[in-house]
């Protein structure tokens, strides 16, 4: 787990210092879709507003970003726990909780939708006190990240609200990563549903990317780069978190496009970073 953070940090430093990374969207999809660059993600965050294509959001109303850390009931005893205890190394089991809420309205000029979001992470860590200049070391035992949103299209015609759920769940005991470049095993799922129709959200992890000069390059490991939105196994949208772009399939009706715009904005406005990415 920790090595993935090292790898990710290393690549972020390398990528930001050398070149601009772009997601290599297959031409089969890009030729039939529109790319929109999202403005407003960086910079002044008070009354933050997003805009992309002909979509724009209201000022994002954020709640308190609540976070707490403390000792809590440990979920189990690991081999590391036993070894540290045996050699009388000072350690503690710490549980970190973080919760963030926000809401906004997204509109395309004709229609609008209200979006209510919550994200939460609970992480249990084994903290080893080294009492040296290295500081304390942390090892994640497990974590549960979830993001949930309720999207209410504001229309004269009755229409059910949509519920968005995206979660990932890591348990060190179930981890299958053994080598340095292995990605940890994550239980993850994402979907948007109104009870009758479902759009699946698939995390996009890529190894190939396009450099600023147009040449293709490859990461040594697959990197989290955004999300793919699918209806019936067909891709209808791509959220590119490398370059803050949203790709939308051209043939969609305006209601679905507004829904995808709401989903994309909600996902891009998240504050709690999932540690695995």
């Amino acid at each position: 787990m920790k090595r993935i953070i090292y790898i990710s940090t290393l690549f972020v430093i390398v990528l930001t210092s050398c070149t601009t990374v772009k997601l290599a969207v297959p031409e089969q999809f890009s030729s039939q879709s529109t790319s929109m660059h999202v403005k407003g993600l960086n910079g002044w965050m008070v009354n933050q507003k997003l805009s992309f294509g002909n979509y724009y959001t209201s000022a994002v109303k954020r709640g308190w970003n609540v976070s707490s850390t403390g000792t809590d009931r440990p979920s189990g005893v690991t081999t590391e726990d036993r070894l540290l205890k045996m050699f009388n190394v000072e350690k503690s089991n710490v549980t970190l909780n973080q919760k963030n809420k926000y809401q906004f309205t997204v509109q395309d000029g004709n229609q609008s939708a209200e979006v209510f979001c919550i994200e939460k992470v609970t992480k249990e860590q084994l903290v080893v006190k080294t009492n040296t200049w290295w500081g304390d070391t942390h090892q994640t035992k497990n974590y549960q990240y979830s993001f949930s949103a309720a999207i209410l299209p504001l229309k004269v015609k009755e229409d059910a609200p949509w519920q968005l759920v995206l979660y990932n769940n890591y348990d060190r005991n179930k981890d299958t990563a053994h080598h340095f470049f292995d990605l940890p095993y994550l239980e993850e799922e994402g979907y948007i549903t109104n009870g009758t129709e479902t759009i699946h959200i698939k995390p996009l992890r890529i190894q190939q990317f396009v450099r600023k000069d147009g040449r293709e390059a490859k990461f040594p490991v697959r990197m989290m780069s955004g999300y793919e939105l699918r209806i019936d196994d067909g891709v209808v949208g791509i959220i590119d978190s490398f370059d803050n772009n949203i790709w939308m399939y051209n043939e969609l009706d305006s209601d679905t496009k507004l829904l995808l715009a709401a989903v994309s904005s909600a996902l891009m406005l998240r504050k709690i970073q999932d540690t695995i990415h």
Binding site: F116, C117, I118, Q144, Y145, S146, S148, P161, V165
Partner: peptide, 8 residues
């Protein structure tokens, strides 16, 4: 509508 929200 926010009662639709769920967490892990």
């Amino acid at each position: 509508v926010s009662s639709l929200l769920a967490t892990m």
